[in-house]
Nucleic acid binder design. Structure first.
Length: 683
DNA sequence: GAGCACTGC
């Protein structure tokens, strides 16, 4: 196997890899080595590829309402266009929406440098969750959710003259919602301008989508392409499909390593288990190469989201002289983390994706083929420092069959929170909302049912006052908001605040990947476990953390993730303030776990399961077979008769996560309406 | 016995 037929990309694809890269500037989350620090900032700005298009962009924005900008990584679109607009004296604010916090922060920092101003000044600022600018900067970088929030108080975005949606090709949940909302706003505010920045080939679709059909005389949307700065990347495909991409990755790494080609290697796989397995296999080879005293030595590092922080940092460290670096990563390395000095990329051609199923109300993690856009993005990771190579573990024929773009998140997501927010923005009939890609009707129906059961909407689908409106304003899942807003009446709001905050953060427990300490970690975790289940266990962990004085040493001793706990504190304080705003008294029930559990059922009642005599759990609605997730404290102890859960994830089986032990009588006592309710009229 | 990646005043 691993018989590669080298070939260049087709002309239509090569554009992204053409130009020489001699200045590396911040573009989105990508970092940053500036070889031309000695040059003036103005000279540096003028070297960017987008500079040649400066006047054309300004002209197009005079003439058209929507500019679809196809700009490849490194062209400077996210930092330069806002500055061009300010220089051309466009009035009011320029708002730029980014899918990730780090992108908003680093872009604001870069533009502050370039304009010789401070971040959070009158010129440049940013707004992300828990960290907003108070003034109104001329150029404002923000995360997507922030702009949606702002629409709630300012539906026509009157503070802005231009909105730029960045990284649209990623098609995040909020990108799609913002596109739908912007389409509406553009019709009502003809002087407003929208820039839709995408790295890929969906430009035509975007143009068609934003063209205002009321305006039959002329187009209101226009496309402009700007080339990026990348070294050429030579792409190779396998001649025949390969049976196993883990083995395939190992083989290619060894083959590159034994060839004369220098440079670090980055391989994309779909999940932690695959990454760990590949790392193990490759380390065996690396050890035997070293033991044999051969020259081609290399070091292998894993990279994935749930890896402890100090282990993640390994991928940025220099390897000792004479060692090549090999990084085996999940999709984190595609957009969120940029690993420097990569020359060879290996792409398995697959990605793990979450899909929500509205009929069963469950999420599934599925391994799917990547899109062409993704494959291109992965390949581009090889061309940042010098000409690179991308080895695709699939045939060219299969590549051509891939979809152009990743299936938008909105068609595969739980829509409860989205619909709540749309309704708060005055979109009464969600079915008529012009999504760029409409989500499946079952998912909308399922969301409306849950919202109705939670009392957030009435039988006509209207938001209830005040509960529904309050729920739309809280930045947590509606199920949890319901619990938070009920907790005052139950007299346990302090405890609930803690539990909900703990649920906002992944990986409370540190999970070392090495054998010895991973066993210790598991033993330590037992200390906090209680028979009432995971949610009360989280409460225990937090209380112990608080008692220790919120210290790092406590976390270290108990294998609790300190960074996560600090985030919990941050979120807890924020949510606490919001509770006060809604006049929910902050009181403690002083250890009465039954009160806390009952309050949790106020939101989780629809996620109830009972232990079937066959020994597995079944959902109360629908009798779907469920299992306790191995991470749950209930996995190792006698399984209780009745539970509610926060989440179901379908991997090898349907697993319930974050469980709470309940009594069946509570369901009828606390949610009598739910198990015999009718469906909402809108469906 | 199992854990794609983001995000929200």
């Amino acid at each position: 196997m691993s018989d590669f037929k080298p070939r260049f990309l087709k002309p239509s694809d090569t554009s992204s890899f053409l130009d020489r890269n001699d200045t590396t500037l911040v573009e989105s989350t990508d970092f940053i080595y500036n070889r031309h620090l000695s040059q003036t900032i103005q000279t540096q700005r003028q070297r960017l590829p987008i500079f040649n298009n400066r006047n054309h962009i300004l002209y197009l924005l005079e003439k058209y309402q929507t500019l679809v900008l196809v700009g490849e990584t490194g062209c400077g679109k996210s930092t330069q266009i806002p500055q061009y607009l300010i220089e051309a004296e466009w009035p009011a604010q320029i708002g730029i929406c980014e899918p990730r916090r780090v992108a908003a922060l680093s872009l604001a920092g870069r533009v502050a440098d370039e304009t010789g101003s401070l971040v959070q000044s009158e010129t440049v600022g940013y707004a992300v969750r828990f960290d907003a600018c108070t003034n109104k900067p001329k150029i404002k970088y923000m995360t997507e959710g922030i702009l949606i929030r702002e629409m709630m108080s300012d539906p026509l975005l009157k503070d802005y003259s231009v909105i730029m949606l960045d990284e649209v090709h990623e098609r995040t949940l909020y990108t799609d919602i913002l596109m739908g909302l912007m389409k509406k706003i553009l019709k009502r505010r003809r002087e407003l301008r929208l820039i839709v920045a995408s790295a890929t080939m969906d430009a035509r679709d975007l143009q068609t989508y934003f063209n205002n059909t009321d305006d039959k005389m002329k187009d209101t949307a226009v496309i402009l392409s700007v080339h990026g700065r990348q070294y050429p990347v030579t792409t190779y495909f396998v001649k025949e499909p390969i049976p196993c991409y883990v083995q395939g990755t190992v083989d290619i790494v060894l083959k590159i390593n034994s060839s004369k080609q220098a440079g670090d290697i980055l391989a994309f796989l779909t999940g932690q288990e695959e990454v760990d397995r590949t790392v193990r296999l490759l380390r065996e080879h690396a050890n035997s190469i070293e033991a044999a005293g051969k020259k081609e030595k290399f070091m292998v590092y894993p990279m994935y989201g749930s890896l402890p922080y100090h282990e993640q940092m390994n991928v940025f460290k220099r390897t000792p002289d004479g060692f090549r670096k090999v990084i085996i990563a999940t999709n984190v390395a595609e957009t969120s983390v940029t690993i420097p000095n990569i020359v060879h990329v290996i792409d398995c051609g697959f990605v793990k994706m979450k899909w929500f199923n509205g009929q069963t109300h469950t999420d599934s993690l599925m391994i799917m083929p990547v899109s062409k856009a993704s494959a291109q993005q992965r390949a581009g990771r090889a061309g940042r420092v010098k000409p690179g190579h991308c080895y695709r573990l699939y045939t060219e024929e299969d590549y051509l069959k891939l979809p152009n773009t990743t299936p938008p998140e909105i068609i595969r997501s739980n829509l409860t929170y989205v619909i709540l927010q749309l309704k708060a923005l005055g979109i009464d009939n969600v079915l008529k909302f012009k999504f760029p890609n409409p989500p499946p009707i079952e998912n909308i129906k399922s969301a409306l049912e849950i919202l109705y059961a939670l009392d957030a909407i009435d039988i006509d689908g209207e938001l209830t006052k005040p509960l529904g409106f309050n729920m739309a304003e809280f930045a947590v899942d509606p199920l949890y908001t319901k619990i938070l807003l009920s907790s005052g009446d139950f007299g346990c709001s302090e405890e609930i605040l803690t539990i909900i905050s703990m649920l906002q953060v992944e990986s409370i427990y540190a999970k070392p990947s090495t054998g010895n300490s991973s066993i210790k970690a598991r033993i330590q975790k037992r200390n906090f476990e209680v028979a009432e289940g995971d949610l009360i266990t989280y409460l225990n962990v937090f209380l112990a953390f608080a008692k220790s004085g919120y210290g790092n040493d406590f976390c270290h001793r108990n294998y609790v993730n300190y960074k996560s706990m600090k985030r919990v504190l941050e979120i807890r304080e924020r949510l606490g303030k919001m509770m006060k705003n809604y006049n929910v008294p902050l009181i403690s029930c002083e250890g009465d776990t039954e009160i806390v559990s009952k309050c949790l059922v106020m939101g989780l009642f629809s996620n109830a399961a009972y232990l079937h005599y066959s020994g597995v759990y079944k959902t109360v609605r629908g009798d779907i077979e469920l299992h306790v997730h191995p991470d749950s404290v209930l996995y190792t102890i006698t399984q209780p008769q009745w539970v509610v859960f926060c989440e179901v994830i379908h991997t090898t089986k349907l697993y319930m996560r974050d469980l709470l032990v309940i009594k069946d009588t509570w369901l009828l006592e606390l949610a009598p309406h739910f198990y015999h309710k009718t469906t909402v009229k809108e469906c």
